[in-house]
Amino acid sequence: MAQKHLTRDHIVLTAIAFVDQHGLDALTMRRLGDVIGVEAMALYRHVSGREDLLEGMVANLIDNLFEDDLMTETPSSWEDYLQRVANATLPLAREHPEIFPLIATQPSEAPWLRPPLRSLRWVEDFLSTLQRFGFSDENAVSAYKAFTSFLIGGLLLQVHSTGVDHLIGFDGDEASNEESDLSGYPTVIKLSELLGQDHSQREFDDGLDDLIERIRWTLTK
């Protein structure tokens, strides 16, 4: 009976939940089948293999951004649109840290589809929206490239913003301090408190503001 109701969407959503809980390395077709309650071979009727499954997971998360409250409202300006896209995408990185790196690394449908806005639907929406606000062809494409470069970098930093102090052994844990001999790095030790501060949200917001200013400047040239 389970196989009768099995769909690609159900498989993809179950895989997303599995990776969120157990990590990407733990995902296999056999384990996913066990979670769903079917033999692994039953999954192959809906996904051709693990790579197809990973692409389905990425596509699901990216396209679902269109359902975010920020994206269902009509933007008042191109600046407002960029703010909405950026802040709709931000929770994606935070809520799915095990999956988000896939969005940056999985091959896309075409080489000019840039992560994280890597679907044809997203590129169409992005470029057409900017052109409705008066962007030329060249300025719209340039903004798409600049914005996606900022976004993927900023969101990957959000994924990895677990605290520099923990990563390099500033958390007071004896084991980590034994593994990280910092005696030869006096400047790092001196600045350890500053390095350990997490300002990722402010840096993301500031970077987005700076990008919007740069795009605005190009429009006046």
Rank of each mutant, 00 (worst) to 15 (best):
Q3N: 02
F126T: 13
F18P: 01
E178L: 14
D205R: 04
D173M: 04
I99K: 02
E193Q: 14
V12N: 03
R216M: 02
E179G: 04
M41C: 00
N177E: 15
F126A: 10
A93M: 04
D68I: 00
P91E: 03
S161G: 01
A15H: 06
S108D: 06
S76H: 09
T72Q: 15
L182R: 14
T74C: 11
D205S: 13
R121Q: 09
A146Y: 04
P97E: 05
H5I: 14
I168H: 04
D80W: 01
E193G: 07
L191C: 07
G154C: 10
E213H: 09
R50C: 00
H5R: 15
V123I: 12
G134P: 08
A104M: 01
L156M: 15
D68A: 15
Y185I: 01
E193S: 15
P107E: 10
L155E: 08
I11D: 04
L113T: 05
A93W: 05
E178R: 14
E55H: 13
D209Q: 15
P107T: 08
T220P: 01
A175E: 07
E193V: 13
T129W: 01
E73C: 09
G153S: 11
A143H: 04
S183E: 13
M41H: 09
K4G: 00
K190V: 00
G172M: 12
S76T: 15
L211Q: 10
M57A: 00
L61H: 09
Q106E: 10
I212Y: 06
L156T: 08
A143V: 06
P186D: 13
Q131Y: 10
I16A: 10
P75M: 12
R214D: 08
